[in-house]
Design a protein around this nucleic acid. Structure first.
Lengths: 150, 150
DNA sequence: ACTGATGTTGACAATCATTATCAATAGACC
DNA sequence: GGTCTATTGATAATGATTGTCAACATCAGT
C-alpha cells in the first residue's frame, strides 16, 4: 500500500517552493538548511516517485545531473529556462508537437516522443549581464562546450 | 601546439563508423575489442575535443550518460533517433528554430539556445516490434519512467 | 487508543561515469 | 638526431545515484 509520510510532503513542498529546476542534491541541502533531518536517499526516492507520477518534470542538466521541477500543468508541455538564474516558464508548443510527429512519420518512425527545451537569459539576467559587460571589457570568449544545444 | 596522434584519429574513425550515438565507455570498449590499446581517459579527452570543435555532437542520455556522434553537417541541426537500435537521422528544423526564437522573445529571453531531439522507433524496429507484440500477448505496461520526453 | 503487518526511512556501502594527477612517451620543429 | 612540450595512460579521486538492511512509522482493523 502507498503511505503518506511527512518526508514525501516535505519534498513535494520544497519542490513547489522552487521557481525552476533543482537537483536532488540541492533540494536535499535546502531541506537540511531549513532544519529537516530528511535523508538524501529519501529525497532521491521521493523525486523519482514524483517524476514517475507526472507530478514533477525531470531533465538532464548538461553536466549530467538530473534536475526536477514541480509543474503546474500535469499535461504535456515544454520549458523556457534561464541559464543564469534558473527561472522557468512553461510553454505550450503545438507547432512543435505537430512538427515532431510529421518529421518522424516522414522517416518511417513511430511512437514519436521528443525532448524540446529552450535555454536563454531571462529579461532580468539579460539586463544584469549587459551591465556587467559594460563594466569589464575583457573580450575573452566563454569556454563553454556543450556542442549540441544551439 | 596541437599535435596529431593516432589515438585521436582512432577515436574519430571509430565514431565515424558508428551509425548513431554512442557513449564514451562503449566507444572505448569497441576500440579495445578491435585491438586498440587506447586508454579510457584519452577517449574521453578526444571526444570532448571533437565535441568542442563541432566535429561531433553530444547529448545526455536519459540515464545521465553523455552520448557522442559524428555528424555530417557541421552546421546546426537536430536528430531523429531510434530508441531501440540507435539509428540516427539528421534533420533540419527551421520551423523550430524560428519558434524557439519567437517564444524566447515573447518572454523577454535573449541568447536563445535549444535542445530539440525526437525519439521514436525506426521503420525496421517498428516492424520487429509489431511481430513481437503479436507473439506475446502479455499486456504488462512498460515501466519506463523518464517523465519529460513526450 | 492498541496492535500487527508491511511500506518507508536513513546511514552507509557500492556502483558508475567522468575528471584530475603525473610520470613517461612521442609528435613537431630545429 | 635533439629538444621542447603536448599528449598519453594507469590509477586515484570525485560526485551523482542506487542498493542494502535494520529500525521505524503508518494504516487498517480491532
Amino acid at each position: 500500500m502507498k503511505r503518506n509520510t511527512w518526508q514525501r510532503e516535505a519534498v513535494r513542498e520544497a519542490l513547489d517552493g522552487t521557481g525552476g529546476f533543482i537537483s536532488a542534491q540541492a533540494l536535499h541541502s535546502a531541506l537540511h538548511a531549513s532544519g529537516s533531518p530528511i535523508g538524501l536517499a529519501t529525497v532521491y526516492r521521493a523525486l523519482g516517485d514524483l517524476a514517475s507520477t507526472g507530478e514533477a518534470d525531470s531533465l538532464q542538466s548538461p553536466d549530467g545531473e538530473a534536475l526536477y521541477r514541480a509543474c503546474s500543468t500535469t499535461g504535456h508541455h515544454h520549458h523556457l529556462i534561464c541559464r543564469n538564474c534558473g527561472l522557468t516558464v512553461e510553454i505550450a508548443a503545438d507547432e512543435v508537437e505537430a512538427w515532431a510527429k510529421r518529421v518522424a512519420g516522414e522517416h518511417g518512425f513511430t511512437g514519436a516522443a521528443h525532448v524540446v527545451d529552450v535555454f536563454g537569459l531571462c529579461a532580468d539576467c539579460t539586463a544584469a549581464q549587459r551591465g556587467a559587460d559594460e563594466r569589464r571589457a575583457d573580450a575573452t570568449a566563454n569556454g563553454s562546450s556543450s556542442s549540441h544545444p544551439a
